[in-house]
Structure formats: structure tokens, C-alpha cells
Design a binder for these strands. Structure first.
Lengths: 341, 341
DNA sequence: TGCGCGGATATGAACGATCAAATACGGTGT
DNA sequence: ACACCGTATTTGATCGTTCATATCCGCGCA
């Protein structure tokens, strides 16, 4: 531990009070309960606050009030081999949503050698944050279990177990996938393949289930394929798939990244995407719009998800009210040329 | 403003002191200056701390010490049309680096209707953070000017002006680009094109300058092209480029995303990448490895950059020492099949 | 005149930690 | 026996805010 140089202190409530010729409490009231002040005093005091650029010290306020106005977001480890589709856009949406509610987002990650639970405990015990925002919820997610046990506020992007707090928000992947398959069926495709790594993430299972449901509903011939995460593998698997005799005329990918491999394979096989082969995927990452032809996919309503998560979390933090049921939001089909005419 | 329900208070230093039969200060010393305690006392006290799960309240500690152990990172607005290559990996590296130094990262973004400077001021005045980490530094970046004026600690990923604090770290894009062009030249290419949007970002200018320097040094015929950000435009521009009579045999892209468009165009023109057309780019985003054939590119040493930034920032915060000169780190060539044999 | 009343403002006491200074405690040397 | 010293531990004050309570003041009313 190095020596710590205390930062210069700023303008305090005392300074403002002296300058305005009133007491501390009057300044505090001007900010927290303006109705208590005589209009004239309020104006004079507010001017002085503005004038001196006074802002209540967050630490002092927190110490007294017990609230931090900070939400922790444990960042998913971003595996370059399997880039997390959410990282970019979701974080973006969360920062915006919480910012508008007057909260800030603190990124946290276990130190080397520290378990996820320990990292959470550290923040709870040190009273650094008011609550947690979790994403990439696994089945029996240990973080959810831990926070539930500790009785600490959290909200989750992804479903939690039935015996746990239902403070989650999720996308109706099954329904979105059914609609996606519906679009494919409406274009006259009969043989459809689903491609996704079989990594056992709940959301991917939902997408797979949605595909199967869609295929059944529309009487299509659907087949599942699960290549590994390696790009080469994906291309190879797709090539094989497309070289077969009864090759599918449409491919549904579990995520936009996979579509990149599918495009590559299709071209290697001499198939034109959109006309000879329909490709659709899920997530609407930037790459979906960048691919040529642009990719038909399902857009996650990230901003609405973030808004709902923050709103639920703040309800727990500020009012102590835990939502009785999870919230399921629809995905939005984004039709682009890769689906065909 | 909704009513605020104070969170239940946790274990305090007083509780531990009473339980261990010593005074507050002894507990404090056990954590902050263990050498002051008799070995026996230390052991007994530490056991009790562990036992009760005591962690000093961060707000109380901050109030007294004036230090927050939090670094603010103003998140660049992520334009989906021009996805920020850094957002993912850089943030990741920053969180890891600061975590190891015992600091946390707070994401901030101006509220609607608030200027960037106001957002910074708010954090400074409320003493919420100890310093700022800036990225995507523009020429005459207003944030740098503002923090310099306020005398508040910051470190920047990207060069700052000569009259400003030199607490920056940057990648030697020029040199990396020269080496990249060198690799292309060594493969026997004579006509080389550089593709990048002309958006005037300093880092892109460096890459362009590096390209020109490399071309000059190796006596190649180099040409600059600046399509817009739109994927369709990129493909169209590349197609035109490749359809010309004296078409380049190698294309250098300003960023990995552009390579996607180039791949598409090359295939449309019937050119095989790696053999008939060399493609190289910059950033080593996940997409570089996903493309088939995989893309030769320049990897930014994100972890080293983050480490250096954090180390410099903490030096300013903790020791009050501002670095005298910026730090330039080399990019790392990642040779992959798109360059050719 | 004195009293009660209510709105506006002021005062004292936390919140939980750390810093600086004070004290307790053995052991030496004379 | 006593001053002296260094180490181990305790005490008091403080950081800047907010909560609960106290005071002030003008006014209507008996």
C-alpha cells in the first residue's frame, strides 16, 4: 500500500451557510426540502449554492443516509473466442437508464483468486453499492443464490429460479424464434437448420426450443447442429451441411456471430445468400447490419430491458418492494435482405 | 425524489472492538498498519474481524480520508454504425487493471441535456471519484482541457496537447502500420490501397500517416480511399477499386470492421483472399479471428495500456506526481492467412 | 399582558472511520 | 528508588452531511 495523499477538500455546506448568512440546515433544506424555506430565502440560498458551485459530498451524504446511489454490475468475463453479444449495447443501455434515475454504475470483477461470491460480499460489507445488476444468468446461478441469501437488492437480466426473488427481466426468445421461423416458412422454405454451440446457456436453450416449436408449428423439416465455438469449425460444419444432398434452404443461427461463418461457408459453396440460401440469426449486433447482404435477425430491446431492470432494482432499494413476477419483453424482428424476398 | 429507505447497517469497527476487548483504533491499525500491533493481539483481532465479517464502511473511510478508491470512465457513446473497437476489450482491461490496484471503475455519461464538462464537474464537486480515465481523445479534447483547468487527476488513452499534462498512453500506430506495410511489401505486393473513413479521429490519422510512410519507405504505389461509414458504401467503393485496371493486390484497412466489407467485395469480384488479394487491418477485434480466412491485423496491447494508464493515474492521485512524458507502446503484428503465404 | 400557535431557521448529535496526541506498560541505567 | 525510553494501546477530535429537536418570531386571541 502506497502513501495516500488526501485530496484537497472542496466547498462544504458550512462555507455556503456562512456566505449566505444562514445555518447549515437551511442549505441542506434548500436542496432536499425546498418547500420548507421562505421563497425569498430559497432564492438567495440557491443563488449562493450556484455561485460557489456547491455539491454535497457524496461520502458524507452516504455515511449519514446509508445510501450510495451506486449500482454494481459484475462484468461478464469477455471470452474473445465467444464475444459476449451484450457487453457493448447492454452496458450502454444500463448506464443510460441508471444515469437518468440518478444512479451510477460500478463495474466489478473478482480479483485474481477471489470467488464471485467473495467479490459480492466485499461490496456488500463495505457498503459500497446499493444493489446489483446481474446479466448472463445461468441456471442455479451462484450469484443469485448468494444475493438472495444475503437479502441484498439485485435485479437480473435472465430468469431466476422459482423460489428466488422474481426481480428479473428477460426476452421472450422462444416467441421471437417462433416468429423468425414463421418468416422463413412464409418464404416457402421447407428444410431448415438451426446452428448454435451447445454450451448450455439458458438463453441459447430458449432459442433452440423456440426453433423447434416454430418448426413444428409450421410443419417444416428442422435439424439441429452444434459446431464448437471455433470459427473454422463453424465454417466446416456449415459447408458439410450445405454440401449434403437434402441441404437446407434456410439456416437459423443462434447468434449473429455464427452468421459470419455461415456467410463464408455459403460463398465457398457458391450459394448466394438471400436467394439460394436464407440466413437469419439473433441479437442484432452491429455485425448484422454490416454483413452483406444485411442479416435478418431479432433485436433485443436493450433500452427497455435496462429501464425495467433499473426500475425494479430501485423499487427494491428505495421502497423495499420485491416484484412478484418476472417481466418478459418481446424481441423485435428486423427483416433484412438475408431472408430473401 | 422518492422516499429513501435507509439500508440496514452492518458490522462496525465499534462492534469488532467490543467483541475483541480492544479499542476502535486497534482494529483500524490491524487493517491499515498491522506492524503496530503485538503479534498476539494482531492474531486475536484479525480472527475477530474475520469472524464477524467486518469490512470498513467505504463512505466513512472516504469521508475521513478524502479518497474514494474509485475511478471514473466516461463511456464513449457507442455509435452502432461505427462500433467502437475499444468498448469491449479496453473496458475489460481497465476493470482488471484497476481492480488489481484496489480501485473500482465507475461508468459515467452526461445526463440528457448535460454537457460533458458539467458531468465531470458534478463528479468532482461531489467528490465521488478520485480521478478520470479518458479514451478516444480528440485533438483539443474539451474534457482534457477541463480537467487540466480544474487540476483534477486524469489519465488519457490517446495523446494530449503539449501544454497539457503528459499523463497519456498511446499505441505507436505509425510504426505498427509501417511494419504492416512492410509485411505486405515483403510478400511482393506493389500496388497497395488504404481504406478508412475520413472522420478526422487522431488515431485514424496516425494509421493513415503510417501507411503513407510505409509505402514511401518500401517504394510501393499506395493510394488512399475514404468511403463513408455505411457498410454498403464500403463494399461498393471496394468493388470499384478492385474492378479497375490497375487494381491493388493488397488492401490495408484502417480498422478490422472495414475488412468485413472488403472480404464481401473481394468475393463479389471473384478474388480469393490471401492468394489473389491480401487484406490486412488494425485493432485485432474478435472479428479478425472470426473472418475466414482469418485476418492479419495489429493487436493493441490493451492490458499493458490499461496497466500503464492506471499506474500513471494512481501516481497522480496518490503521490501527486504527474508524468513528464507520454508513454508510447508498440502494436503487435498478428499474422494470419489473409496476408497470403 | 401573557399565552399558544405555527412557520422559518438554528443547534446538537449522530453516521463510521482515521489521524494526532495522550496514556499505559515494561524494561534499563544510574 | 526514580527518571527515562520505546512500544502497544487508548482517547478525543474530525471529516461533511442529515435527522431530530430546539429556538425564534410575529400574530391572533383571551
Amino acid at each position: 500500500m502506497t502513501a495516500r495523499r488526501p485530496r484537497e477538500r472542496g466547498v462544504t455546506i458550512e462555507d455556503v451557510a456562512r456566505a449566505a448568512g444562514v445555518s447549515r440546515q437551511t442549505i441542506s433544506n434548500a436542496l432536499n426540502a425546498p418547500h420548507r424555506l421562505k421563497a425569498e430565502t430559497l432564492e438567495r440560498v440557491s443563488a449562493m449554492i450556484e455561485n460557489l458551485g456547491y455539491r454535497p459530498d457524496q461520502s458524507a451524504r452516504s455515511l449519514k443516509s446509508g445510501t450510495r446511489r451506486i449500482i454494481a454490475y459484475p462484468t461478464p468475463v469477455d471470452d474473445p473466442a465467444n464475444p459476449n453479444p451484450l457487453m457493448g449495447g447492454f452496458l450502454e443501455a444500463v448506464v443510460a437508464a441508471s444515469g437518468e434515475a440518478g444512479y451510477r454504475v460500478l463495474l466489478v470483477r473478482p480479483r485474481p483468486g477471489q470467488s464471485q461470491e467473495q467479490a459480492l460480499d466485499e461490496l456488500i460489507a463495505a457498503r459500497t453499492v446499493d444493489g446489483f445488476l446481474l446479466s448472463d444468468i445461468l441456471r442455479d446461478d451462484p450469484r443469485v443464490a448468494h444475493l438472495t441469501g444475503a437479502g441484498f437488492p439485485f435485479a437480473a437480466f435472465g430468469r431466476t429460479g422459482p423460489e428466488q426473488p422474481q426481480s428479473w427481466v428477460d426476452v421472450d426468445s422462444v416467441q421471437a424464434m417462433i416468429e423468425l421461423v414463421g418468416m422463413v416458412a412464409a418464404r416457402g422454405h421447407r428444410r431448415v437448420a438451426f446452428l448454435a454451440s451447445s454450451s448450455g446457456q439458458p438463453w441459447m436453450d430458449d432459442r433452440r426450443a423456440g426453433f423447434l416449436a416454430g418448426v413444428r408449428r409450421h410443419g417444416l423439416a428442422g435439424q439441429l447442429y452444434s459446431p464448437g465455438d471455433d470459427p473454422g469449425e463453424i465454417v466446416a460444419a456449415t459447408c458439410e451441411l450445405l454440401a449434403g444432398r437434402d441441404r437446407p434452404t434456410a439456416i437459423v443461427a443462434g447468434g449473429d456471430w455464427l452468421a459470419l461463418g455461415i456467410y463464408t461457408a455459403a460463398r465457398a459453396e457458391g450459394l448466394e445468400i438471400g436467394t439460394e440460401l436464407a440466413v437469419v440469426a439473433f441479437d442484432d449486433l452491429p455485425i448484422a447490419a454490416f454483413l452483406q447482404p444485411a442479416l435478418t435477425t431479432v433485436r433485443l430491446p436493450l433500452r427497455r430491458i435496462a429501464d425495467a431492470l433499473i426500475s425494479r432494482l430501485l423499487q427494491i432499494i428505495e421502497d423495499g418492494v420485491t416484484p412478484q413476477a418476472g417481466l418478459i419483453l418481446p424481441g423485435e424482428l428486423v427483416i433484412r435482405p438475408s431472408l430473401g424476398p
